[in-house]
Design a protein around this nucleic acid. Sequence first.
DNA 1: TAGAAATCGGACTAAAAAAGTCCTACTTGG
DNA 2: CCAAGTAGGACTTTTTTAGTCCGATTTCTA
Lengths: 133, 133
Amino acid sequence: MLRISKRVEYGLMALQYLAKNGTVATAREISDANNIPYDLLAKIMQSLKRDGMIDSFQGVRGGYRMMLAPNSVTLNRVVGALEEETTITECISPSRDHSMCELNNSCTIKEPMQKLQTVLNDSVGKMTIAEFL
Amino acid sequence: MLRISKRVEYGLMALQYLAKNGTVATAREISDANNIPYDLLAKIMQSLKRDGMIDSFQGVRGGYRMMLAPNSVTLNRVVGALEEETTITECISPSRDHSMCELNNSCTIKEPMQKLQTVLNDSVGKMTIAEFL
DNA sequence: TAGAAATCGGACTAAAAAAGTCCTACTTGG
DNA sequence: CCAAGTAGGACTTTTTTAGTCCGATTTCTA
C-alpha cells in the first residue's frame, strides 16, 4: 500500500546530509556517503533544486546547498517534488479527467478515499526534515 | 509514494458491498456490480476470508458474508489481509533480516521512518469500513 | 444422482512502474 | 585549457502489480 519510493528515500537522505552539514555538498559526496547510485541521485537533486528547497552551483567548486530551514520542509513537499502522482487513488488525482472513475461513474469508494487522503496528508505533512537530524 | 493497490481498492469495494447488503453475495455479483475482474476479485475474497473478516460458503447457494461489524474492521486490517508488505520502507519490515539496511548499517533515516510508520498506522487505523457506507 | 453454480487455489502471462545506466552538453574555478 | 561539477535526455533492466487460465472441490436442487 504505502511503501515510499527509492527516489523519496534517497531524497530524504540527501536533504538530511545537507541539513546536517550546513555547507555545500556535491552529489558524488552524498552518494558515496549513503551508498546511493550516483546517476539516480543526480536526477533527484535536480528535482529538489527545481522545487526550490535546495540551491545548486555548477562548475568545479559546485554542489548543492539547503535553501530552507529543515523544520520548514515537510515530507509532503519532498514527496511532491520527487513524484508524479501523490494521490492514494487514481480517481482522486487532479492530473486526469476524473469526473468519472475510468469508464463508469459507479465508483462507490471515492468519498471515503478522499477522506483518507486528507488524513494522510495531514499526518505526513506534520513531519519535516528537522525530524531527520 | 502512497498509492493503494487495486487489491485493496477492490477489497474495500467488496467489503462495502457486503456490509451494505447484509446478506450473502457471490464474487460474481460483486465483480459485476463494481466492474472488477472476476478472477482477481475471487482471490481477494479468499484472502479476506482467511483473515476472518468475512465468511464463505461453497456450492450452489454459496457466497460471502460479513463476519464483523463494519466499524470494527479497520483499514489497517484490510491492508494487512491483502498485502505482503505493509511497511513504508524495506528496512522497517519485520519479514526480512534488517539488523542492517541491506549491506551496510549506515542507514541514517531508519528512526524517522519508524516514526512516520507509526503516525501512518495510527491515522489509517482509525478509518473503518463503516466510513464506506 | 447428475449437473449447475459456487468457492478454492496454483501457475502463468501481461502490463505498468520503478530503479538504474549511459551518454552528451554545459558551467566554472584554478 | 581542463578537471570537476551540474543539467538533462534516452534508454535498459528489474520488480511489482494486475490480470488470466485452468482444474479441483463443494453443495444445492431438480
